[in-house]
Amino acid sequence: MQTRSEETRLIFLRGNAGSGKTTVARRVQQLYGHGLAVIEQDMFRDITLRETGVPGPLTRPLLATAARQVLDSGHHLIVEGLLTTPRWEDVLAALAADHRGRTFGFYLAVPFDETVRRHSTRHKATMFGAAEMREWWREEDRLTCLVEETVDHTSTVEESASRILKECGLTPGSGCAL
């Protein structure tokens, strides 16, 4: 089932835990304005469904359904999360194939030690630590269904967000004011 708008942008923002996905996605949303939604994998898994570890049977279809609804409403969309290739590539490939607008992928390439350092500054630092992050770590976990642009660990949040908007053809401040 294709999403109806050819004008919408679907953006996948992936990377390891602590790489800055949520921070960058939220900054892109702030810069653009109303009309660009962010779906956080962690929100569905940790908050909505209260799952830990491997996503349960509802996370994948719930995220995919929400993404389709957002795109069908005419909003641009960032789907962000670990979204590891073995567990998520089929879902992301189906979303990309069904999306009539343009689809983009960005991969935050941040070294392990830097993800641990960044994680130590977040509220989630009490929920898990370096040992768990090491277990989840996937070196260069790239999609095969879509070319993902690399966002280097030296890129600031502001630089990363501005680059994503530019490469996706979105103008900062062009969303509707709330």
Rank of each mutant, 00 (worst) to 15 (best):
A64L: 13
T65C: 02
T65E: 15
T65M: 08
T65N: 09
A66N: 02
A66P: 03
A67K: 02
A67E: 02
A67S: 14
R68Q: 09
R68L: 00
Q69N: 10
V70D: 02
V70A: 03
L71D: 03
L71W: 00
L71A: 05
S73C: 08
G74Y: 12
G74K: 13
G74L: 11
H75D: 03
H75N: 09
H76V: 08
H76Q: 13
L77K: 09
V79D: 08
V79M: 07
E80P: 04
E80T: 09
E80D: 12
G81C: 11
G81S: 12
G81W: 07
L82N: 05
L83T: 00
L83A: 09
L83D: 04
T84S: 13
T84E: 10
T84F: 07
T85A: 11
P86W: 01
P86A: 01
P86M: 05
P86F: 04
R87Y: 07
R87L: 14
R87N: 06
R87W: 07
W88G: 01
E89W: 06
E89K: 00
D90M: 12
D90S: 14
D90T: 10
D90G: 14
D90I: 09
A93F: 05
A94T: 14
A94G: 13
A94I: 02
A94V: 12
A94D: 15
L95R: 09
A96Q: 15
A96T: 13
D98Q: 14
D98H: 12
H99F: 05
R100S: 15
R100N: 06
R100Y: 06
G101E: 12
R102K: 14
T103N: 09
F104A: 13
G105K: 05
G105D: 08
G105A: 06
F106V: 01
Y107F: 15
Y107V: 08
A109Q: 13
V110S: 00
V110H: 07
V110K: 03
P111R: 03
F112T: 06
F112D: 07
F112L: 12
D113W: 01
D113F: 01
E114G: 03
E114S: 06
T115H: 10
T115P: 14
T115C: 15
T115Y: 14
T115S: 13
V116T: 01
R117F: 02
R118C: 01
S120A: 15
S120W: 06
R122P: 02
R122Q: 12
R122K: 08
H123V: 08
K124N: 06
A125D: 11
T126P: 00
